[in-house]
Amino acid sequence: MVTTVLFGVLILGVILELLRRRRLREKYAALWLFTGCFVIVMALFPGGLDGVAGYVGVASGASLVLFLAVVFLLVIAMHLSWEVSELEEETRSISEEIALLRMELERLLPASPALQEGRRDEPTDSTS
C-alpha cells in the first residue's frame, strides 16, 4: 500500500514539475493528474475497490483495475497516434510552404549570395 501511494505521489510530482516548466500542455496534464489521484485513492482505500467490482459484476477488484488500466492505456495510445498524425500533417504543410517561399525568394533575389550558397548546402542546414 505504501508503494502504491508513493507511486501515485511520484506521478503527481512529475506532472506538476513538467507543468511548472511548461513542458506539458494542460490538456494532457489533467488526464495524468487525475490518474495520479486515482492511484492514491485506491491505495488508501483498497477495500472500496472490491465493493465497486462486486457492484458491476466483476469477481475481484484486482481484475477490475487491470481491465480498466488496459482500456485506459489503449485509449491513450490511440489518442497519441491521432495526435502524431495531426502533427505530421502540420509539419508537411509547413515544409511545403517553406519550399514555396524559398522559390519566391530566389525569384525575387536571384543574385543573393546567401541563397546561392544555401543551394549547395545539405537540406537540413539551410540557415546560412
Binding site: 515544409s95 511545403e96 517553406i98 514555396l100 537540406p123 537540413t124
Partner: peptide, 9 residues
C-alpha cells in the same frame, strides 16, 4: 523551376 522541400516527404 526548382522547389526544394526541407526534408523528404
Amino acid at each position: 523551376l526548382v522547389a526544394r522541400l526541407p526534408y523528404n516527404l
